[in-house]
Amino acid sequence: MKAFITVIGRDKVGIIAEVSSLLAERGVNIEDISQTILQGMFTMIMACDISDESSFGELKGALQESGDKLGVEISVRHADIFNAMHRI
């Protein structure tokens, strides 16, 4: 399944490394990545392909845990919610 991961928070060293190694360990392929500073906040968006859909819950929990450790908010959502909302 296609999903988007968003990371929002204070910029610091190692955010991309932490998130991408977590995804690599779980066999999640990163298809696109963009980052920017919006109103002083670090914002990263990753488009991913999660081959094992059944592990989605575990992945979500692991990302949230990483987020807590890094002091940023990390969430992952199925791409369909963005397609539904922004594309006719």
């Binding site: 988007f4 968003t6 929002i8 696109d32 963009s34 920017t36 919006l38 914002t43 968006i45 488009a47 908010e73 969430s75 959502r77 791409a79 919610i81 963005f82 397609n83 909302m85 922004h86 594309r87």
Partner: peptide, 16 residues
Amino acid sequence: MISGIEILETVKMIKE
């Protein structure tokens, strides 16, 4: 492709 602005809009709608 969904833009970053659109993705953040959805996230903000839900979170904030």
